[in-house]
């Protein structure tokens, strides 16, 4: 939780220039943490979280712009739409590794095509505008600073909930399923239901992230996601660390904050996620967090050894 405090103090330390990228990192961090649960612990590698996020985003945007719903209701609606999509598609998590990955990738592409096709609803390729600025419970959250605290508050809350969830029966069941499904089944774990639960939970997080993004960006287009987001999210999980709760957040910060500050062009930025995915999957599969942790452990041990 020390990390959480550090993050929240960042704008103070680094100045407000870092806000836009950190806001994006926090928003998508919510989805990334969900994917960490799904892919990192349960072992269900999904390349389609961006698709569910898109559903959440467009649903919330539609509710806000066309039906003039208040933000709380629109966000809830967006999350609900995403959860519903996850529930409907939950048979997919019965598929094994490779097939799951490609089926979810296909889902993301299907969502993107549908978004373009139903242009009357979604504004098609031209995008969707008209989302109201965000006011939650009477607070105006439309300034960058406030939005920053909102999304990171949510992200850290999600991490905390995840930690509790993973330390419980449910988390251990997921770990066992990941290790060897028959063993889990023989131990009384309803494998299908647990997988579906992980799928729906992470779908809910993805949808919430999408809905928040809609409010932040005030503009949605079918190309922003689902596919690039899906890749970004899985890259974040791989880069940051699939198993550690904070891993995906760290990975996402690396993926989003870095390019803005290195001033890469539009195309190089788009290439960063796949590139880091390739590099980390090849050479550092455990991700940043475990390496940092073992490094910190070694440093502390050496310190303790010197004192003794």
């Amino acid at each position: 939780m020390a990390a959480g405090v550090i993050i929240l103090l960042l704008p103070v330390v680094l100045g407000h220039g870092v806000l836009p990228s950190m806001i994006l990192a926090g928003t998508w961090g919510v989805a990334a943490v969900g994917l960490g649960l799904l892919a990192g612990r349960a072992g269900l590698v999904s390349l389609g979280q961006g698709g569910i996020a898109a559903v959440g985003a467009y649903a919330a945007a539609y509710a806000s712009a066309r039906w003039a719903w208040p933000a709380e209701a629109a966000l809830a609606f967006g999350t609900f739409a995403g959860v519903a999509t996850a529930v409907v598609t939950s048979p997919i998590c019965r598929l094994s590794g490779f097939y799951l990955a490609t089926a979810t990738l296909t889902l993301a592409v299907i969502v993107q095509r549908l978004l373009v096709a139903y242009s009357s609803l979604t504004g098609g390729a031209n995008g969707f505008v008209g989302i109201r600025p965000l006011t939650l419970l009477g607070f105006d959250v439309s300034t960058e600073l406030r939005f920053f605290y909102l999304v990171w508050g949510i992200a850290l809350l999600v991490v905390a909930l995840n930690v509790n969830l993973l330390r419980s029966r449910f988390g251990r069941a997921l770990d066992t399923i990941h290790a060897h499904e028959p063993t889990a089944a023989a131990a009384g774990i309803n494998v299908a239901r647990h997988k579906a639960a992980a799928w729906v939970i992470s779908g809910g997080y993805a949808a919430l992230a999408g809905a928040l993004y809609a409010y932040y960006n005030q503009y949605l287009s079918p190309d922003q996601f689902p596919l690039p987001r899906s890749i970004e999210l899985i890259a974040a999980v791989v880069v940051g660390g699939a198993v550690a709760p904070l891993g995906p957040l760290v990975g996402l910060v690396a993926l989003i904050v870095l390019p803005t500050h290195l001033n890469l062009g539009k195309h190089l930025t788009a290439m960063l996620a796949p590139a880091l995915l390739v590099i980390f999957a090849s050479f550092f599969p455990r991700g940043i967090v475990p390496h940092v942790r073992s490094f910190a452990d070694r440093v502390l041990q050496r310190r303790a050894g010197a004192d003794a």
Binding site: N164, S168, F170, A173, A187
Partner: peptide
């Protein structure tokens, strides 16, 4: 301890806040 889970009955949501 995973083996013991099957005898558990507490609601899962309770895990979120222990």
């Amino acid at each position: 301890v995973v083996g013991a889970h099957v005898r558990g009955t507490a609601r899962l949501a309770g895990a979120l806040w222990r």
